[in-house]
């Protein structure tokens, strides 16, 4: 009986120790999870700011004058052809014309 009692006490003490260890590990893990969550939250907030900044920098009111300064404008009928083949033919004809003018110049 005494042996049993001693064993029970030892078991209680060891389980208490084990429980303390588990609790300690859990708290550590919990702290790590919290840190990770905070890092994710921070990253989310940073992404939100970056998204807003990108949209602000890419707003049409800012891009339009820059594009115009570069000589860009809305597509006109002169820029469009009926098919890729027609576009290619147009490019080849223009290239031939330029080559011919260069040869004549020489």
């Amino acid at each position: 009986m005494r042996i049993l009692m001693l064993a029970a006490v030892a078991l209680s003490i060891s389980s208490a120790c084990l429980l303390y260890g588990l609790s300690y590990d859990t708290r550590l893990l919990q702290a790590r999870v919290r840190a990770q969550e905070q890092a994710i939250d921070l990253a989310h907030r940073d992404i939100a700011v970056l998204k807003a900044e990108r949209a602000h920098l890419g707003r049409p009111a800012r891009i339009a004058p820059l594009a115009r300064a570069q000589g860009l404008g809305p597509a006109s009928e002169h820029q469009l052809t009926g098919s890729p083949a027609a576009a290619l033919a147009s490019v080849l004809a223009e290239t031939r014309r330029r080559s011919a003018s260069v040869v004549q110049g020489n």
Binding site: H78, Q79, L80, T81, G82
Partner: peptide, 21 residues
């Protein structure tokens, strides 16, 4: 909506003229 001067609407997609671009 491409300008209709060179191609009919509803036909194949118009392509950008490389030289003009």
């Amino acid at each position: 909506v491409p300008p209709t001067g060179v191609t009919a609407l509803g036909t194949a997609r118009a392509s950008f003229d490389a030289i003009a671009t």
